[in-house]
């Protein structure tokens, strides 16, 4: 199902949680609603579910204006952060609950429960109570309960935040798999950029209730629209150096160095922020000299902390054995992963 949001706004008293949000979510995709804590992403999820009424704007499901529809009419499945499994019901009763309301006949119900339970691998747990399940199992049951009524839209609120690191990896693959198998349009809320980048078809990046960028993970990473988008994605965080840009040269603010850019910015004497991803540095005989402040290995990669004209940056560099702390190397910037932003507005230049 295609979801369209048109200038959707939600205010709580004087606080604006979601501010004029416009976006289109394509049918059958797994969409990550990404943003820092308190940016309004959970509020937006609740607006999609119909739990909260929108203060302004319109929401369309496949062209139908559902803005005023109550949750049960929207046909959404919702998975809560704490799963919200009914503690007094068994797993089977939990999954059965939405079907009973829909007055699905009993034999049909039993078949649907078995089918969905085997899809999320909880078929052996049907007689247990939620308190006898592990976090991952509860998550699976919660997904089963949300999916059993065949929703047009599946919403997951921070689905992985209550799991330990290993389970989190496992469950995000599971969410991806189940989404592919059912083909249901799925929106999940997360503040973890890595989680969002690893499984989603599309990332909706939010900040302070406003849409920043809506694009596939790779686009977002390689072509961020503003400084926030560049900052929020990627690990280690993107390097940022204040200075002035002129054509294809960038002068550091402290005057310590001049860095040649891999592109011509088409600007003259414009104050800006140069943002460079850690993997966008390259050793080059004719490059800018910089001092190695520190070196460390991360897995198979060699990470160096460099000082360029007084500014500290982190870079992945193939440094050979004789190179040591305090040595000077010469680097240049690769064409990919180098951006210029306005220092005040954060807009891409």
């Amino acid at each position: 199902m295609k979801v369209e949001l048109s200038r959707v706004t939600k205010r709580f008293g004087g606080t604006v949680a979601v501010d004029g949000f416009t976006a289109t979510l394509a049918d059958g995709q797994l969409i990550a609603l990404l943003g820092p804590s308190g940016c309004g992403k959970s509020t937006l999820l609740n607006l999609l579910a119909g739990i909260l009424p929108a203060t302004g704007g319109r929401i369309f499901f496949d062209g139908d204006d559902v803005t005023a529809w109550p949750p049960e009419r929207r046909g959404v499945g919702l998975v809560f952060q704490n799963y919200a499994l009914y503690p007094h019901m068994t797993v089977a009763q939990n999954i059965s609950f939405p079907l009973e309301i829909k007055k699905v006949p009993k034999p049909e119900r039993a078949r649907m429960i078995r089918e969905i339970a085997s899809m999320v691998h909880v078929e052996d747990l049907l007689d247990r109570r939620p308190d006898a399940l592990s976090g991952g199992q509860q998550q699976r049951v919660a997904i089963a309960r949300a999916l059993v009524k065949r929703p047009r839209l599946l919403l997951l609120d921070e689905p992985l935040s209550n799991l330990d690191a290993r389970l989190r990896l496992e469950m995000r693959e599971e969410i991806r798999r189940v989404q592919r198998e059912t083909g249901v349009t799925t929106v999940f809320v997360t503040h973890d950029q890595e989680e969002a980048m690893s499984i989603s078809d599309q990332i909706v990046l939010m900040r302070d209730g406003r849409l920043q960028q809506c694009a596939p993970a790779q686009t977002l990473y390689h072509n961020p629209v503003n400084r926030f988008a560049a900052e929020f994605l990627g690990n280690p965080p993107i390097n940022q150096i204040p200075g002035t840009v002129s054509g294809n040269r960038f002068t550091l603010k402290n005057g310590g160095a001049e860095i040649p850019l891999p592109f011509d910015a088409g600007l003259a004497d414009r104050p800006a922020i140069l943002a460079v991803r850690a993997e966008s540095f390259q050793l080059d005989e004719d490059g800018v000299p910089c001092v190695i402040a520190d070196m460390f290995e991360i897995g198979k990669e060699e990470m160096a902390s460099l000082t360029i004209g007084g500014e500290s940056v982190r870079a992945y560099l193939p440094l050979e054995a004789p190179t040591r702390k305090g040595d000077t190397v010469r680097v240049r910037l690769k064409p990919r992963g180098v951006f210029l932003f306005d220092g005040k507005t954060g807009d891409r230049l």
């Binding site: 119909g50 739990i51 049960e72 809560f80």
Partner: peptide
């Protein structure tokens, strides 16, 4: 009682 259960039930159509 956690109000989350009521929300869950409402979304399920109760």
């Amino acid at each position: 009682v956690n109000p989350m259960f009521y929300t869950a039930a409402r979304v399920d159509g109760s």
